[in-house]
Design a protein around this nucleic acid. Structure first.
Lengths: 148, 148
DNA sequence: ATGTCTGCAAATCCTTTGCATTTTA
DNA sequence: TAAAATGCAAAGGATTTGCAGACAT
């Protein structure tokens, strides 16, 4: 548990930097928030609020608290929300170093990352139209091999 | 109002071809369906089910009927559904000749088409992973000039 | 101490479902 | 006239809001 960054694992480091963002934004550091960040940092795929709540141990914190914090973190740019075909949103840590999208199986909801993004041109078009603070939602849906 | 395609306006033509799709899929041609198709054909931007219902004149047909038909049309490939940041879906005619995306203002919800799509590479990646029946959702969000 | 965060309950929003009735083919 | 579509009422799922008590700063 070094404070020396060279001795920290990747997720410890991610956790610390997310925590700093919270402090910088004047968020209070509470147990639910720490637990939520710790979970988000470990995540290999985006999860729904409900799933996040379950993984935190449903009894520990209220689902409402999960929602409220996910929203707060989203506003602070710490978390990304992605709307899905089914109407519920998935959340993941905003890992600023990397930009990727997902392919989601319509049947089993298995999710994999796709490490490439060509949306730059579209963002340029949009900013030419006068839009600012541009973000995008891009997700692919399909049926995976095992479900077929 | 000729039956000769050369005398028809674009939207008349789109309407007729959407109607043919319905017939081909063994849908029954009802008043709500005709009204819905006529509206979708004229649409310059994607609308929510609620907005579509209003434009049809809320008293004429039930909102449930709008939902049911939008879903049926979506399954038949006649309509596209796009999930949004706000949690509700927007719908538009699936104009098969053209593929475009939108830039949506977070504040006033003004929407414009962006006539370009570079997602082909991502779809290739996904199909290499074994996924089939691949579709994608890609929408940009920003703040338009007037809202800024 | 004071303003923020939390939990609980209840409300809200969007969408879907069940069932009796009407309509299309 | 049989199967499918509609309308109405009611249920459902995801998310938000109100408020009193608990907690971080």
């Amino acid at each position: 548990m070094g404070h020396d960054p060279r001795l920290m694992s990747t997720s410890e480091h991610k956790f610390d930097s997310a925590l700093s963002s919270l402090k910088k934004e004047r968020f209070r550091i509470t147990e639910p928030r720490k637990a939520l960040l710790r979970l988000l940092v470990e995540l290999s795929k985006p999860l729904s609020a409900e799933e996040i709540h379950e993984r935190l141990g449903s009894e520990s914190f209220d689902l409402v608290t999960v929602y409220r914090n996910l929203e707060a973190f989203e506003n602070a740019g710490i978390v990304n929300r992605m709307p899905t075909e089914s109407g519920k949103s998935l959340f993941e840590l905003n890992a600023e170093q990397h930009h990727y999208h997902h392919i989601i199986c319509r049947k089993c909801h298995r999710t994999e990352k796709l490490d490439s993004c060509e949306v730059v041109k579209l963002e340029k078009l949009a900013s030419d139209l006068g839009y600012s603070e541009i973000t995008h939602v891009l997700e692919l849906y399909g049926v995976c091999e095992t479900c077929r």
